[in-house]
Nucleic acid binder design. Structure first.
Lengths: 221, 221
DNA sequence: AAGAACCTGTCACAGACCTGTCACGCGATG
DNA sequence: CATCGCGTGACAGGTCTGTGACAGGTTCTT
């Protein structure tokens, strides 16, 4: 597969490039929007990884331009945690998925695979587990067919769990992923959010199981 | 497994080495970045444990160089809690995980296992011995097809035994692995946990055999 | 600008759940 | 027979979680 990575932080870019290459992909790297546009006009990419904050402008403008040209190359947006609330506008512009920094490489890999798979089937970005559907890009959740509105943090927590159902998430890991490093939050916050999420999931076959001393796990009954 | 430990504090390094060796791994130890680079060019490591603060530079430069050489040996970064903001850049540079100091050996062990497992591929996550399956990531155990819920310590004990069936575990070794240094626990605790585990395994072909005066062993009948 | 409506993270507290110890019985050992 | 190591049931103390209430912040309305 041939990817285009648009990212201005050279270290991060290098690391991502290397890892994706090790996965057997070909990567071109653009550090600015104008480079990205140039690349995307010439190269025939299977997937574009797009950072939002770029020196010569907002990644969104690239995305918009990209879509205006009626290209259907899928785009995964790389965003810092604090920019996550921009979710909606990204969806409007046609991003296929997004990954928040910092990310495990494994996570990125998984997203890439998922997006490519979806593109092959041309389906929407809606994940489903038991009787719960989750559209991470739009932030839409339905439980037993009924739309449920979650708040920002609840969404992000659900997203984490949803991406690895059946896996144990230690509380500390959830803290790390849900909050940025400079906000130090008590672990109790996670308990509270788990409780809130559970309330929203009531009536569904999805359960958040507590493993004392180990963490939480999303199970579909 | 063969590990490279890059750590300049000799006491900490020695402690980590000893414990990892007890776990059956081979460890090389580098105290500086230049040593680390030399080692990593020759040795074929399964995992690298990397301290960030080193006398001749920043662990980051090692990490960067490591990735530039397109090696995919997984790297776990050891950071002090105060260096929290560094974790970000570490993940950005391609580290696979991080552990904050001071850490329990158990925690380090767990991270190592997780990273190695990931690298090995997702297929192996469910281990099976006789009629017992064990999924360490999910914390799931089934005996004769039936799910059994184990608690924290029981799980960890089972994991130890499961990873080396047929091997004799002296009681003291189990104490060392299951508890951290500062909790001093009577050996009887192990007896109790063995008993509890046995109860959970009832009906299965897996047996925990007592070798009087020597230790315990997991046997599949 | 003032006010309303939300979101968020913390607190305090109760209760559930774990844990390691003890005491005692048993069989093995020598 | 005297010891010693081990297995167990019961227990008390702690630890971990779940929750309702709340105060400080934000965002949206008016």
């Amino acid at each position: 597969m041939k990817f285009l990575l648009v990212e201005d932080n050279p270290d991060l870019a290098a690391a991502v490039c290397v890892r994706l290459q090790l996965d057997g992909h070909t990567i071109d790297h653009a550090g600015t929007i104008s480079d990205a546009i140039a690349f995307s006009e010439i190269g025939d990419y299977d997937l574009i990884l797009l950072d939002i904050m770029l020196p010569d402008g907002d990644g969104r403008s690239f995305l918009k331009q990209h879509r205006d040209q009626k290209r259907d190359t899928p785009v995964i947006v790389l965003t810092a945690r604090s920019q996550v609330s921009d979710r909606i506008s990204m969806l409007d512009l046609g991003a296929d998925d997004y990954v928040t920094k910092p990310f495990d490489h494994e996570e990125l890999q998984a997203r890439c695979r998922a997006v490519l798979r979806r593109k092959a089937g041309a389906a929407q970005t809606v994940l489903q587990l038991a009787d719960v559907t989750f559209n991470p890009v739009a932030g839409h959740v339905t439980v037993c067919g009924k739309a449920v509105s979650l708040r920002n943090r609840e969404l992000r927590l659900l997203e984490l769990l949803f991406n690895a159902p059946g896996q144990i998430f230690p509380k500390q890991k959830l803290v790390d992923r849900l909050f940025s490093y400079d906000e130090d939050v008590s672990a109790n916050a996670i308990e509270v959010y788990i409780a809130r999420l559970r309330k929203h999931l009531e009536g569904s076959a999805l359960k958040i199981t507590t493993l004392r001393g180990l963490g939480y796990r999303l199970d579909h009954g």
